[in-house]
C-alpha cells in the first residue's frame, strides 16, 4: 500500500543517489529528483489488477506488486503471459477490468496526467514515423508529455544514445539498432522517473545488447526506476535487482534476484576423472550421480540450501572406491534454468 510522503525516507535515498552518482552522469535528472516532493517507496503499487479482453481471454488474474523507486525490476514470462498487458495498463494504453494502480502515489485513472508524466515507455515494436527526423520526433515526445522545450536535454539524450550525428536524417535511414535506441531516446525526452522497457533488446546484436545494458545501468545511476520485460534471461540476470515471474496472467513469484538464485538454485559439482568410468558404482546410485563426457566427468547435483550437501561424504566415498580425479568445478543454476522450472511447474499444476 502506498504510504503518505515521508521526507526523511526520500532524503536518505536521495543522499544515497548522490553518493553513487559518477560524473558526467550526475546529471539534470538527479538534480531534478532532489527538487521533487518526497515520496516513499514503492514508486508503483499494483493492487488486484485484472484484465479480461472482449474475447473473454483473461490476461491478468489479480496481480499485486510493488516496485521500489530506483530499482531495476525484471518481469519474466513466456509469450502471452500478460507482461505487455500489465505494462500497457500502467501506461494508460489498455483499460483494466478491475484493480488499482498507483504511480508515485497517484491513481493512474483519476490522476492520469500526473502518473503518465512520470512514465516513459519503450514498446516492443519499433513504431516510428519513418519520414520524421530523430530530433523532431524527440521534441514532439517531450511536448506531448507536457514539458517545455529543452534543447540541451534532447541533445544530451541523443548523444547518450549515439544518435546525435543522425539527428537531422530521416528515421527510415536508421538501422534497426538505431531505431531501437531512438525509441529509448523518445521515452527519455520528458525526463521520466519510471522507464518501462518492453523487450528492449529483442532482435538486436550482442554488441548493441551490451550497450543497452550499460545504458540501463547509467539510467539507474541517474535514479530512474526501470521495469524490464525480456525473453533473454541473461539480461535479467545481468541487470535486475528483483525478478518477477508471470505466467498465464498470474504473478508466480517476486524475489530479489540474488536471493532467488540462492534459494531456488541448485549447484552442480563436476569432477574431471583421471581414468574414465564405464558405469557409476552401485553405492552411488542414491546420490543421483551422472556420467558425462564419455565417462571422463562425474556430475553431482546438490541443493545449496540443504542442511547437508553431501559433498564431504561423496569425496570420501570416491577415495574409498579408488576413483581419482584431477579437477573439481562447481556451477550455480542460472536464472534461465530457474525460470524454466518455475514456468514448467506452473503449467503442470
Amino acid at each position: 500500500m502506498f504510504a503518505p510522503p515521508q521526507p526523511h525516507a526520500k532524503a536518505a535515498a536521495a543522499l544515497g543517489l548522490i553518493a553513487r552518482c559518477k560524473p558526467p552522469m550526475c546529471s539534470v535528472l538527479t538534480a531534478r529528483r532532489l527538487q521533487r516532493p518526497f515520496v516513499t517507496d514503492p514508486i508503483i503499487s499494483i493492487q488486484g489488477l485484472t484484465k479480461t479482453y472482449a474475447s473473454g481471454f483473461q490476461a491478468l488474474k489479480g496481480i499485486d506488486l510493488d516496485i521500489r523507486e530506483g530499482e531495476i525490476f525484471a518481469l519474466l514470462g513466456p509469450n502471452g503471459a500478460g507482461k505487455t498487458t500489465l505494462i500497457s495498463i500502467i501506461c494508460g494504453i489498455v483499460t483494466a477490468s478491475a484493480g488499482r494502480v498507483l504511480v508515485g502515489g497517484y491513481d493512474i485513472v483519476r490522476d492520469y496526467r500526473k502518473t503518465r508524466a512520470m512514465i516513459g515507455l519503450v514498446p516492443q515494436e519499433l513504431a516510428t514515423d519513418s519520414f520524421e527526423t530523430p530530433l523532431a520526433t524527440c521534441r514532439y515526445s517531450r511536448g506531448l508529455f507536457g514539458r517545455k522545450p529543452n534543447p540541451a536535454h534532447i541533445e544530451k539524450t541523443l548523444k547518450q544514445l549515439s544518435l546525435w550525428d543522425k539527428r537531422n536524417g530521416m528515421i527510415m535511414a536508421l538501422s534497426g539498432g538505431m531505431k531501437r535506441r531512438l525509441m529509448i531516446a523518445k521515452a527519455l525526452s520528458h525526463e521520466p522517473r519510471v522507464l518501462f522497457l518492453d523487450e528492449p533488446t529483442a532482435g538486436v546484436d550482442v554488441e548493441l545488447r551490451k550497450d543497452m545494458w550499460a545504458l540501463v545501468e547509467e539510467l539507474r545511476r541517474d535514479g530512474v526506476t526501470i521495469i524490464l520485460t525480456t525473453h533473454y534471461i541473461e539480461e535479467a540476470e545481468a541487470m535486475a535487482d528483483r525478478v518477477g515471474v508471470i505466467n498465464h496472467g498470474d504473478l508466480i513469484l517476486v524475489e530479489e534476484k540474488a536471493a532467488l538464485m540462492q534459494k531456488m538454485g541448485q549447484k552442480r559439482m563436476v569432477l574431471d576423472l583421471t581414468e574414465p568410468l564405464a558405469a557409476i558404482p552401485n553405492r552411488f546410485t542414491a546420490l543421483g550421480l551422472e556420467l558425462a563426457n564419455e565417462g571422463r566427468q562425474l556430475v553431482y547435483t546438490y541443493d545449496t540450501q540443504a542442511e547437508r550437501t553431501g559433498i564431504t561424504s561423496l569425496l570420501s566415498d570416491l577415495r574409498d572406491e579408488g576413483i581419482r580425479f584431477r579437477d573439481l568445478t562447481t556451477k550455480q543454476s542460472s536464472l534461465e534454468e530457474i525460470f524454466v522450472s518455475l514456468v514448467h511447474a506452473g503449467d503442470v499444476s
Binding site: C91, G92, I93, Y112, R113, K114, T115, R116, A117, I119, L121, P123, E125, A127, T128, D129, S130, S141, L144, F145, G146, K186
Partner: peptide, 11 residues
Amino acid sequence: IGTIFEMLSAP
C-alpha cells in the same frame, strides 16, 4: 504504424 501508443500513454 503503431505510434499511437505514445499519444495514449501521454498526459
